[in-house]
Amino acid sequence: MIRLRAIRRGRGLKARLVGRALRIVYRGDAPGFVKVLMFRPGLLGTPLGRYGDVVMRGPGHWAIGERELFGAAVSSANACGYCVGVHSRIAADCLGDPVVDALVHGTGDEAEPALSAMVTFVRRLSAAPDALTAADLEPLRAAGISDDAIREAAHAAALLEIANRVNSALGVEAMDPAGNRRAAAMLLRRGYDL
């Protein structure tokens, strides 16, 4: 359960009306992170959504599904059940389940080398950023990944580093598969700038 009562209840008429609408859309309670984003949107929801939209949906070197895969891998490293569920679902919808199984869940080996190298890097960046050296970039460059593409992947990772911590610290719980599917479909259709 979300630890802050003010977020659970929603603040302001707009938040409460949108919350009611989302309960209908999601056939139950609105996703926990959506409630967090709607709480004081000027501080977090709006600027994070605008940043996330260009990171995950803007023109770039990586496809949408690949960026979502980086986010899912970081979320897995941080054990954020909510974000793993949603972003794995989006990545799987875009890239197929075998790639997500291999690079997020570690239960397969079907992955393209550049994608695999980038996922390995963002996982290490998540777990031990201070331990990284320039040598950690060599596998990326050997796989043909440009510096700008590395930056793009790092921003996808950073977005989820932020979201994972907010969710875990505030007590946002993972959704069931149906909830993940609905949230994934919403994010694919509408993007992050809500």
Binding site: L43, L125, P129, L137, E161, I162, A163, R165, L170
Partner: peptide, 23 residues
Amino acid sequence: FECVVAAALAAGAARLRTVERLL
């Protein structure tokens, strides 16, 4: 809420700085 958001943002920003340092 502000404390959680600011500390979470710090973690993301630190990793972006790490990548720029490596590059």
